[in-house]
Simulated scan of single mutants.
Amino acid sequence: MTTPDPQLALQRVLLATLPGVVALCWWYGWGVLINLILAGGCALLVDAGVDRLRGRRVRDLSSLVSATLLALALPPYCPWWLCVAAVTGGLLLGKHLYGGNRNPFNPAMVGYALMLVAFPQPMSHWPAPHGLDLLAGVNQVLGLHGAAPDAWAQATALDALRINKSLTIDELFARSPAFGHFGGRASEWVGLAYLMGGLWLLWQRVFSWHAPVGMLGSLFVISLLCWNGSGSDSHGSPLFHLLTGATLLGAFFIITEPVSGPRSPRARLLFGAGVGALTYLIRTWGGYPDGVAFAVLLMNLAVPALERLVAPKQPQVNA
């Protein structure tokens, strides 16, 4: 079910991100491309530096893929140092610390989680739809004077739902510019673009269906069981959770990473199910609005146990 050549698979993953990149650029403007340029350049420099220290020359696309996914997950127009620190920390602590070929944690999510814990304020500054023009965007990223107009950033749909105490879900969708038809105003379209790229990867047999179906299925089921309609204490509908935040990016591009994830199909299914359940729990009762990164890292810890759980039982031999 997988592509024989790992480098060909990584090339296809990069190609499959293009619909999501186009959708992000449509909604948020130049900040997405600035993130991608900074992250890609930083990844190449980090790999070159590590190769020089180790006295070897290894060229693969895994670091570039991790940097690309991290750039897509970071807020557009975030400070340049945040993007550089995220990529550097993610690759050094998530990949090269373990030799670079069998890391237990997803490097992109390591970098994202580090920045979310260390710098929560800039990590929450998502721009309003259609973002800034090129000059204002570059000024904002570089921290120059006159960077951006007032109120260029706004709360995301997950943020707005989390802090809501009085409005019903219908009122939130009607009044808040962060909400669209079923989920976040921009994220629902970006998520559908990631879905398009993910289905193409499935068709190309870059990965199997087990992890994405496990994550989306468990997130749908737990959000359906905990959904209490449109009241002010509602945690959102199943469709809202599927089409908001990093759900579809995580399902098709993050948890399908072959190095840090399980290898057996049944373990992948359980891995995805755990990520979906933890994502909902963190979003609803945790300290962060979107829990995909922490859910992935927590389930990375459980990979050896999942592999042992689904391993065939060895018959006992009587002495």
Results as ranks from 00 to 15, higher is better:
residue 48 A to V: 13
residue 48 A to W: 11
residue 48 A to N: 13
residue 50 V to S: 11
residue 50 V to C: 13
residue 50 V to H: 13
residue 50 V to N: 15
residue 52 R to Q: 08
residue 52 R to D: 11
residue 53 L to E: 15
residue 53 L to G: 02
residue 53 L to T: 12
residue 54 R to Q: 12
residue 54 R to S: 00
residue 54 R to V: 01
residue 55 G to P: 02
residue 57 R to I: 11
residue 58 V to M: 11
residue 58 V to Y: 01
residue 58 V to D: 08
residue 59 R to E: 13
residue 59 R to F: 04
residue 59 R to W: 03
residue 60 D to A: 10
residue 61 L to S: 05
residue 61 L to C: 02
residue 61 L to G: 03
residue 61 L to D: 05
residue 62 S to Q: 09
residue 62 S to D: 03
residue 63 S to F: 10
residue 63 S to M: 08
residue 64 L to K: 09
residue 64 L to E: 06
residue 65 V to Y: 10
residue 65 V to A: 05
residue 65 V to L: 12
residue 66 S to Y: 13
residue 66 S to Q: 12
residue 67 A to I: 07
residue 68 T to W: 08
residue 68 T to F: 08
residue 68 T to Q: 00
residue 69 L to N: 02
residue 70 L to H: 02
residue 70 L to V: 08
residue 71 A to Q: 06
residue 71 A to F: 04
residue 71 A to S: 06
residue 72 L to A: 00
residue 74 L to P: 01
residue 74 L to D: 00
residue 75 P to M: 10
residue 77 Y to M: 03
residue 77 Y to D: 05
residue 78 C to D: 05
residue 78 C to S: 10
residue 78 C to R: 07
residue 78 C to T: 05
residue 80 W to Y: 14
residue 83 C to A: 13
residue 83 C to I: 09
residue 84 V to C: 08
residue 84 V to G: 01
residue 84 V to H: 14
residue 86 A to L: 03
residue 86 A to N: 02
residue 87 V to Q: 00
residue 87 V to Y: 11
residue 88 T to L: 09
residue 89 G to A: 15
residue 91 L to D: 07
residue 92 L to H: 14
residue 93 L to A: 15
residue 95 K to I: 10
residue 95 K to Q: 10
residue 95 K to G: 04
